[in-house]
Simulated assay, not measured.
Amino acid sequence: MNTYIRSIFLILFIAICGGAYAQSASKAPQYKVDPYWPKPLPNNWILGQVSGVATDANDHIWIIHRPLTVTDDEKGATLTPRRSKCCVPAPPVLEFDKQGNLLHAWGGPGAGYDWPKNEHGIYIEPSGNVWVGGNDVTDHMILKFTPQGKFLLQIGGKGESLGSNNTTQLGRPAHMNVDPAANEIYIADGYLNKRVIVFDSNTGAYKRHWGAYGNVPSDEKMANFNPTSPQFANPVHCVRLMKDNTLLVCDRANNRIQVFEKSGKFIREMAYETETKGSGSVWDLIPSDASQKYILIADGTNNEVTVLVRETGQKMGSFGRSGRNAGDFHWVHNIAVDSDGSVYTTEVDTGKRAQRFTKSK
């Protein structure tokens, strides 16, 4: 083979291999369900609607569920006379390790605080402290506990909401995220109010709030499913702080994500599955790993998790479908990741479960 032909083959080889490498390097993460996570609960316990999930610095997985949504058919062991051998509602807050072993369980009404009637949302600070909320029509507060369940702080209270511009009371909050550098907690507020509101995470002192596009929020009734609406729709369902100090907000029923500076200054927005009606498309989101190149969207109406490029909103893939089998979803509600990039999801309505998805090799 002469030198010229060898050079041509070499160029082709480099082009093919280099192209394949570039394609592999830019490939979005893919996932497969772990059908054995979590392990069976002890004490004859059963879960109701699982309305929140978070991971902590130890790669433990925390969920919050709604014991009051366990039906008589499911809690037959608690009835008088006993209806069946199974089951008993588990405590609302449960902590698991990555292998699916239950480590701790606690929560519920107690002295000195207002436990929510319909649990919604959980967040774990880097210090390990646990925040929970609720979205019943009387749940206008969030609560802070130690990892062992000792009460520390309450923001807002039960009763009536005072509107989207009140600085002390919440309005059926959905989700929260702490900025440890500033000791501030951002709250997606929520199912009644139409705003993001910020408090001191140690004292509960009010800091600031804003609505869509960084404007003063309004409680005016507006049509849903409008990705250019001047106001957030209900619910404002998630708030996530990125490592570049941008804040991503789930405007669920307007099928969009809005991006802000921590001050509340609007940066940009991304429309997502804009033809979705029902309960909207953007239920929760989380970066797929530490690089935060991709975000994962929990879409509880279309019942899938979608991989998007964070900076552009480009769809790179998805997993899941509506169904009851392992890996399927019914109202996939919240999402979290651990340090290995494994994904944890929760389901409400009649889904009533948590699932784990590992990265495909």
Rank of each mutant, 00 (worst) to 15 (best):
T80I: 13
E95M: 12
L170N: 03
G163Q: 04
R240D: 12
A54W: 05
E74G: 11
H175N: 15
N101C: 06
V236R: 10
N129T: 12
S339H: 04
V198Y: 00
E304R: 15
D328T: 12
Q30D: 13
A298N: 07
Q23G: 13
T146A: 04
S164R: 03
S201R: 00
A181Q: 09
R172S: 13
R172E: 14
M1W: 11
P40M: 05
P180H: 00
G157M: 03
W331V: 11
V196P: 12
W37C: 05
K207D: 11
D73W: 13
D56F: 00
H120W: 12
N255M: 07
T203M: 02
V239A: 07
S218Y: 05
K39H: 10
P173V: 00
V332W: 07
N193F: 05
G18E: 09
T138E: 14
P92F: 04
R172I: 06
F357C: 08
E160F: 12
P29L: 09
W62H: 02
T228D: 09
D34H: 10
P287Y: 01
L170Y: 00
P227W: 06
F9N: 12
L103W: 05
W62R: 04
P91K: 14
D97E: 01
V216S: 13
F151I: 06
N43T: 07
D289R: 06
G48R: 09
E160A: 15
R310D: 03
G341C: 09
G156D: 08
S360Y: 08
G278Q: 05
G110L: 06
R268D: 11
K221Y: 14
G108P: 02
N334M: 08
Y213S: 08
V93F: 06
I5T: 12
V348Q: 04
S229C: 02
D189G: 04
M141Q: 15
S218M: 09
P217W: 06
R240K: 15
E119M: 12
F9M: 10
I5Y: 14
T146H: 05
L10G: 11
F329S: 08
V332A: 08
A205K: 14
L143R: 04
S51A: 12
S24V: 02
I295L: 10
G280W: 03
D179F: 00
A253D: 14
K315E: 11
R172Q: 15
G214I: 02
K265R: 15
W210V: 06
Y213W: 10
T346N: 03
G211E: 03
A253C: 11
F266G: 01
N202M: 11
F13M: 13
G149R: 05
P89K: 08
T168V: 10
Y294E: 05
P29I: 10
V198N: 01
D139H: 00
C17I: 14
H140F: 04
S279G: 13
V309I: 13
S24M: 13
G327T: 11
N129M: 08
G48N: 06
L308P: 04
M316E: 15
N254H: 04
Y36C: 10
E160M: 13
L79F: 11
F96A: 02
T306P: 09
Y113H: 05
E160G: 14
N202Y: 09
G107I: 01
Y36V: 06
L102N: 01
S281T: 07
F145K: 03
S127D: 05
K277Y: 07
P126N: 00
Y186C: 03
Y123G: 07
N325K: 15
D56G: 01
Q314K: 14
G149S: 04
K315R: 14
R172W: 03
S201C: 01
G204M: 08
P173L: 01
N215R: 14
